[in-house]
Design a binder for these strands. Structure first.
Length: 749
DNA sequence: TTAGGGTTAG
């Protein structure tokens, strides 16, 4: 809304004025019911009751026409009645109100107020304020009703400036001590996201009633400051203000977010004692509170005893089971729902997301579309998150197009999820395009950009983004710095990383967490400073976790440092005795360094303890379907074709000078067998499948659960050159963009 | 006045 609206008159000339006059004039006499009683002294006894019985604009217009015919249309009370109907009734029409308003020679403050109320009611606060301005120009003084009507129109962050100007007028006209005006101000500030100012007005109010308290409590909920909602509720009790069901619904919502079962139970008891009338909304709020606090038995008890349930009751139960980890039970209730809207679908989709079942997310999303339920922005964020995890670029792109075409609200959450999805699918160009189009960005946006560039090996771009972020006065947080350190790590920028690590605390007051120390270990270790990396671990103010030791172990593998590897592996196995990945890494290191005796020892220990290696798994999306391959997989319907293509590829590669790199294979087997095992790695199967299933020159995108092995890395480079294909592999830690025989990681991984 | 969303070291 333009601020100028209060400073300058923008009084609207009713475009429909002429049209309305025509409508009234054209009403044929047959439409008009005979109003014989109008003959009895109309001036002294206006037929007010006629207006009170009006149910539609047609009836109102008929009555109005009669009044005009009888020559009593200038009665002020009749004007008020017509305008009140048009402005406040559900069937009302502001254009007609405007038409009548223009015929009144000197409208009184009541009529002005009613017009303001009407424009606010139809969500046109700018028209309301124009009327207000016009009223002042006509020397009509506002009264205590004027401001609540005006203020009620300001309900969003964008309206705050206008709201504040109206507040100034409230003070100027001396209405700042009126209960209703104060309440309207509290409400306006609360809805415009300024709960602290609302609180200030509330504290200064001469009188407060339960409605004002309710406005404050719901305002804190809206600002996600649930702890303060609860404090207000307690304070209200101390002041002896009795809560209404509106209060309790808000308080229960806060309890649900705070997981405050104790206060929740107190509210439940208050309701059970008959202090407020029970309602569906109240019951829903109760089951939500119990479900959120993990008391699913109580939540279900209430749900089952309800005589009437709605979508929300069911959704809350589904969500409750998802939260308690019972995804199958959640699904059972979801399947039983009599009807489902986008919120219920999203609740179920989020359940699968939470349990990392990303494929099921996409399956459910397809079902949702089959049932013709339109996804909203919340659904889209969930789907994009699943696409990011799966590397499902085509589905992700489809989502972006769907959002544009179907006017799904493209808010900051959606844009941030899009950026994250594009980066995690290796498409940095599209991520940047989304970023550039954004009208406003928050710290999540900037952080997603930094992390995104970092994992894609574009360290310089990541650091440029950090500079832009600081220039835009957005404070980085701990996650931002994880991205920054990660960018330095993936690009071997050791000194820069060291500097960022110290400036993080010195300049931004962010205390390093175990994750930040982990990044430093990675930064130093990967660059070959393995001893210094161990020093960092020793000096950490907290206990190093398994990730930190695993990072050091990974660095030892790259730099073939057996001694340090043994230290790291020992520490790791103490923390996680059954971690298969550690044993495999240690085996890799022993194999590379030709320490076969140690290798056998580890293998023996693994067998004894029943430790299994995590099977390598690669995903590749083809025409919107995600295909999954594990090492040696033969379950794919096109398996035969895939293996014969793979054979062909290996022949082509050998012809081009490829030598199989079996150095990391920990098995005590012959060279041929080793080569065979390597050739069945999941990423090779996915590459072969990609080559036979897509058009020439189309990029092959693969997501792998483990780190890509040296041999597969080499093969991918050659494939990109020999077949002229861009191959993008996202492994556990980063992206490898293979183009024309080389990789974006510059073999630094 | 009741249900839902985003970034995180290996």
């Amino acid at each position: 809304m333009p601020l100028s609206i209060l400073r300058k008159t923008h009084f609207l000339r009713s475009p429909l004025k002429k049209k309305m006059a025509t409508i009234v004039a054209s009403m044929s006499p047959t439409h008009i019911s005979p109003l014989t009683h109008l003959h009895s002294s109309p001036e002294t006894n206006p037929p007010l009751s006629l207006f009170e019985n009006c149910n539609s604009m047609d009836q109102l217009k008929q009555t109005h026409s009669q009044i005009i015919q009888k020559g009593i249309a200038s009665e002020p009370i009749l004007h008020s009645k017509i305008i009140a109907f048009c402005c406040t009734s559900k069937a009302g029409c502001m254009n007609y109100a405007r038409y009548v308003f223009d015929t009144i020679p000197e409208p009184n403050v009541y009529i002005w107020n009613t017009m303001i109320k009407g424009y606010t009611r139809i969500n046109c606060p700018n028209y309301a304020v124009s009327f207000y301005k016009e009223m002042l120009e006509k020397n009509i003084k506002p009264d205590t009703y004027t401001f609540p009507f005006l203020l009620k129109g300001y309900t969003s962050d964008a309206a705050l400036q206008c709201g504040k100007l109206v507040h100034a007028h409230v003070c100027k006209f001396g209405f700042d001590s009126d209960l209703f005006v104060q309440r309207a101000l509290v409400c306006m500030y609360s809805l415009c996201g300024q709960i602290d100012i609302a609180c200030g007005v509330f504290d200064m109010s001469s009188k407060t009633d339960v409605v004002s308290w309710n406005v404050m409590i719901s305002g804190y909920n809206r600002s996600k400051r649930f702890d303060e909602s609860r404090k207000f509720f307690d304070a209200m009790g101390r002041k002896g203000v009795l809560p209404t069901s509106v209060t309790l619904v808000s308080v229960l919502s806060a309890c649900s977010k705070l997981k405050d079962l104790e206060t929740g139970k107190r509210v439940h008891l208050y309701i059970m004692n008959g202090n407020v009338d029970p309602s569906l909304i109240l019951e829903n709020a109760l089951i939500d509170m119990y479900a959120a606090c993990g008391a699913m038995d109580v939540a279900l008890g209430i749900f089952e005893s309800m005589t009437k349930r709605d979508l929300i009751s069911w959704t809350v139960i589904v969500k409750g089971f998802v939260n308690s980890g019972q995804i199958d039970v959640a699904r059972k209730y979801f399947d039983q729902m009599p009807e489902r809207d986008s919120v219920s679908w999203t609740a179920m989709i989020d359940g699968y997301l939470r349990f990392n079942n990303f494929k099921e997310v996409l399956i459910l999303f397809r079902e949702m579309q089959t049932e013709k339920v339109n996804p909203d922005e919340f659904t889209m964020v969930s789907i994009l998150t699943a696409c990011a995890q799966l590397g499902a670029l085509q589905v992700g792109e489809w989502v972006e197009t769907y959002i544009d075409k179907n006017q799904v609200k493209n808010d900051i959450y959606v844009a941030n999820a899009l950026i994250d999805m594009y980066f995690k699918c290796g498409n940095t160009e599209k991520a940047v395009r989304v970023f550039e189009k954004m009208a406003c960005r928050d710290k999540f946006t900037w952080t997603a950009m930094i992390v995104g560039f970092a994992i894609n090996g574009q360290g310089k771009e990541a650091l440029d983004i950090l500079s832009d972020m600081l220039r835009a006065s957005i404070s980085p947080d701990d996650v931002t710095y994880i991205g920054v350190l990660c960018a330095c790590t993936h690009n071997g920028m050791v000194n820069e990383g060291r500097n960022f690590f110290s400036s993080m605390t010195l300049d931004h007051g962010i205390e390093p967490s175990v994750a930040h120390y982990g990044c430093m270990v990675d930064l130093l270790g990967r660059a070959g400073h393995v001893t210094e990396a161990l020093e960092v671990i020793k000096k950490m103010p907290m206990e190093p976790n398994s990730i930190v030791w695993g990072t050091l172990l990974g660095a030892c593998r790259v730099h073939k440092n057996v001694e340090m590897a043994e230290i790291a592996a020992k520490e790791l196995l103490q923390l996680e005795p059954n971690n298969g990945a550690v044993c495999v890494l240690l085996c890799n290191i022993y194999a590379v360094c030709n320490k076969l005796e140690n290798l056998r020892e580890v293998r023996h220990m693994m067998m004894e303890r029943g430790i299994k290696k995590t099977p390598g798994c690669s995903l590749i999306e083809m025409n919107g379907i995600v295909h999954e391959f594990v090492a040696g997989d033969q379950s794919h319907p096109q398996s035969e074709e895939i293996y014969s293509k793979l054979e062909e590829i290996m022949e082509d590669l050998k012809f081009a000078g490829y030598l199989c790199n079996t150095s990391e294979l920990s098995l005590d087997i012959g060279e041929e067998e080793k080569e065979n095992a390597l050739n069945r790695h999941s990423e090779k199967l996915a590459i072969a499948f990609g080559l036979i299933s897509s058009e020439p020159r189309v990029t092959i995108r693969i997501v792998k659960n483990l780190r890509i092995c040296v041999d597969c890395h080499h093969v991918a480079k050659l494939v990109s050159r020999i077949y002229d294909r861009e191959v993008i592999v996202r492994d556990r830690t980063r992206f490898h963009h293979f183009r024309s025989g080389s990789c974006s990681c510059k073999d630094y991984w």
